[in-house]
């Protein structure tokens, strides 16, 4: 799964630490998601979408491997 968390974050001038704090996860988790090394749970994906005021599909997208 691909995502554009990094872009969304940049558009809002947020650091990884800001985002981590807002959705109550560690900075490693944000970093791993942005690096496509970790696929978040549905709960976390929904939290991120709510924070960015977007639909989940606007942030997360299946890739060829899925």
């Amino acid at each position: 799964m691909k995502n554009n968390i990094k872009v969304q974050r940049a558009m809002r001038n947020m650091t990884q630490a800001d985002l981590a704090k807002k959705i109550s996860v560690s900075r490693q988790t944000i970093n791993a998601m942005e690096g496509n090394k970790y696929v978040p749970s549905t709960i976390l994906a929904l939290k991120i979408a709510r924070l960015f005021e977007k639909q989940v599909e606007e942030i997360f997208e299946l890739d060829a491997e899925d």
Binding site: V25, S26, T29
Partner: peptide, 11 residues
């Protein structure tokens, strides 16, 4: 638990 425990740490 880690200081900030979350699903990625659990994995």
């Amino acid at each position: 638990k880690e200081k900030i425990e979350d699903e990625f740490i659990a994995q």
